[in-house]
Simulated scan of single mutants.
Amino acid sequence: MTFIRTLRGDIKPQDLGFTYAHEHIVCRPPYWVEKQESDLLLDDKEKSMLDVEDFKRHGGKAIVDASAVDYGRDVQAVHAISEELNIHIVGTAGFNKSFLWEASIKEELKPLIGNYQTYTEWIDTASINDLAAFVVREVEEGLEGTRYKAGQVKFGTGYNRITPLEVKTLQAVARAHHETKAPLHSHTEAGTMALEQIELLKKENVDLSFMSFGHMDRNPDPYYHGQIAKTGAYLCFDGIAKIKYAPESTRIQCILELVKKGYENQILVSGDTARKTYFKHYDYGLGLEYIIAKWVPRFIDDATKQGFDGEGLIRKFFIDNPARCFAFK
């Protein structure tokens, strides 16, 4: 049976609807808490909910919350938003990148993982199978001891390198994927190391059609994107609106280059809005409504003028592709 696992339960893929594939909704990453980086703390459930409500008002139906355990997710708050707004939210099990692991582990987690002081200590000390078992529990039983289950598993690597502990979490997440059949997602710092991740995943016998690679637009290299796409994996262009990294024209052209090569069924789009300054209701940013309300019409216009079926591509990127990518098969 094919299904998508949301925080409110399993649904049919065709019921997912218009989906943002990589966002953060309510989270307090311990690393950024300790660094007192307030901008990176999405710590007000009501303000986050107002942005999600904006997304829904424009026709949005689902959001994949990519906040893993080391990113300080607030499972109860995100589930409450899902319930109050009647919107699908997919939760994430697994891990992020290694520099975040220097932070302290909150006391509430220690009964679930052991009396480790930092994420680095936990990941270094625990066996791969122990880490995999933790990820499996989050998919099959619930995130952080709740009854709200994860709908994808995640690992991450740093900029232009993969540390031994990042290899370890990749292996653990791959094993959890094999046991649960949950789809996989990866953090690629600045869009790097996806091809190296692929080689490691192949050693773990992972079918790459279950895999989505994040932050692809941080590395706007069409050849690189093509090399990833030919493995069957999904590419997530999740930096929409972040003009400090590249103009929208660059992102759109990278996406259309993949379409020209026949990979339109492997493209996902989102915003990775992980700062207060990206949210409308925290700090007057563009907000979660920006992509669906402003970027989508711009993409349709631009793609159509270049001879593409802009509206058809939008349906693929936000409805059809997520329905396949995030399915347990």
Rank of each mutant, 00 (worst) to 15 (best):
T231E: 07
G214V: 06
K202R: 15
A241H: 06
Q227W: 05
G232P: 10
R251F: 00
D217P: 00
L201G: 08
K168Y: 08
K242H: 06
I162C: 12
S249E: 02
S249A: 10
F210A: 13
D217E: 05
A241C: 04
I162A: 11
L184I: 15
T169I: 10
V206I: 14
V173F: 02
Y224L: 09
E196A: 14
G239P: 03
A241K: 02
Q197W: 04
E166A: 14
A174P: 04
A194Q: 09
L200T: 03
S249V: 00
T188R: 05
Y223L: 07
D207W: 03
F237M: 06
Y224W: 09
E204Q: 11
H187R: 13
L201I: 04
E204I: 02
E248K: 01
A241I: 00
V206D: 03
A190N: 13
Q227V: 10
E196N: 15
E204T: 01
A229H: 04
V173S: 13
L235Q: 12
L235T: 05
K244V: 07
S186L: 05
A182P: 04
A233S: 13
A174D: 03
E248Y: 02
Y245V: 03
G239S: 12
I243Y: 01
M193K: 15
K203M: 06
R251T: 00
L165Y: 08
V206A: 07
Q171A: 10
